[in-house]
Amino acid sequence: MQSELSVNGVPVKVEATPDTPLLWVLRDHLGLTGTKFGCGMGLCGACNVHVAGQPVRTCVTPLSAAIGKPITTVEGVGRDRVGRAVQEAWLALGVAQCGYCQAGQIMSAVALLRASPHPTDQDVDSAMAGNICRCGTYPRIRAAIHRAAEQLRSAP
């Protein structure tokens, strides 16, 4: 069955059953492998993208729920200033170790900063609690989110 999606501002057609999780549509059908598989149960956040601006776990989101809504993945998140600021903060602080979970972390961080430009430590912890990093980059993720927030405030 053919569906039309809008991914990173580009309209695309995919041939997939409507129950197919958006994760596999992005990765297998569209070749957007930046979005990662981690658990398949919505437990780890590695597969986070934005659908209509909201962070969504694509491993438990069926294709049918994303039709007609703009989708942003890590490949497209740098197209706006919040995404760019987060990516730059990640690089400046050397956040990534293996890097595998970082796409999901970045998508959660960008959603947080869009919703709350002045996040407290507690805001950061609760916004990021759904994202697992097995390498243990949490301290640097916290610092990078604050750095990106500062940078966005100082250069509006």
Binding site: L32, T33, G34, T35, K36, T73, V74, E75, G78, Q87, W90, L91, G94, A96, G99, Y100, Q102, A103, I106
Partner: peptide
């Protein structure tokens, strides 16, 4: 800086 950092934050790093 990490030789892979830029690819990682842009979703280009290949695992």
């Amino acid at each position: 800086r990490s030789v892979d950092g830029g690819d990682i934050v842009a979703g280009r790093a290949a695992y």
